[in-house]
Design a protein around this nucleic acid. Structure first.
Lengths: 147, 147
DNA sequence: GTGAATGCAAAACCTTTGCAACTGG
DNA sequence: CCAGTTGCAAAGGTTTTGCATTCAC
């Protein structure tokens, strides 16, 4: 699981003008850096509020547009829990999400090494799985919460 | 996988006045029967349109209220794919959902017998999982589609 | 008769869109 | 100069809510 509390590592100035085929504008860099720095799975609103600190004129629509562009170019993942506002996650490694019902915090969880989807699901012969989204909710022991 | 095309088996008249602690009104019976009869994971809109055939005065808000009540009393499951409208499913056995990207149809998929969540996920010691939602998207071979 | 459920309309909420102004190459 | 992006406001789609009316015990 991860919820890395790192000092600011990513600065907009350091982001190249293009990333994964996407032209990185000032706003896209800002949004992307926010996600990379504070990997706490913020909503678009959360990103908007944080982005305004450094770019007071940024609009919520632009934040949505930036997030959509980043998601489409697979620089960021969109995470949905039920019908709650989407959250965004820059962790591109295969993982699923666990939400702590006590704190609301979302943690990344990885699959066991070497596990295959057919090892745990009864899928019919020949089905081709293109996307998988797994979300969990539950209680983290407080000893683990700090991680 | 299931997509049972059954003749009408459930009729509102046959539903008891109370189910799982929920008082079954005329509308709730209707909604519940629709779900039980046509197990195709309809949206609230779908249910509304179907329900109106037999209850022309039913309102969309009532359909939402009924579905919410049924979900809260665990008579029906709410299924979310991304941010698409919620779908509803009366299959209470543990299962996950697979959406065929070609037809849009949703199929129920079960876990391998005896499989435990810790067999495929790297969960930290002591975590208590309360809810699990797994959705898949992909392509079904046409030979399997008819099931 | 009384508490709960319905139906209607309006509101709430998240997200997308239209469009004029701006940006950056 | 021009395609693409922004910011703003308005619209969109899904779901919820307020409230008067109706229903069922």
């Amino acid at each position: 699981m991860s919820e890395s509390a790192s000092p600011v590592k990513f600065r907009p100035e350091e982001i190249p003008a293009e990333l994964g085929g996407l032209r990185m504008t000032k706003q896209r860099k800002e949004v992307y850096c926010l996600l990379m720095d504070q990997r706490d799975h913020p909503t678009a609103q959360d990103v908007f509020i944080r982005a305004k600190e450094r770019m007071p004129n940024i609009s919520l629509a632009t934040v949505y547009n930036c997030l959509e562009a980043l998601v489409n170019h697979e620089l960021v993942r969109q995470v949905n829990f039920d019908r709650a506002p989407s959250r965004y996650c820059p962790n591109l490694e295969e993982h699923v999400h666990f939400q702590d019902l006590e704190t609301g915090a979302i943690h990344d969880v990885v699959f066991k090494k070497g596990i295959n989807i057919n090892d745990f699901l009864e899928l019919p012969e020949g089905v081709e799985v293109r996307e998988l989204e797994l979300t969990l909710k539950g209680i983290m022991p407080s000893s683990t919460k700090k991680n």
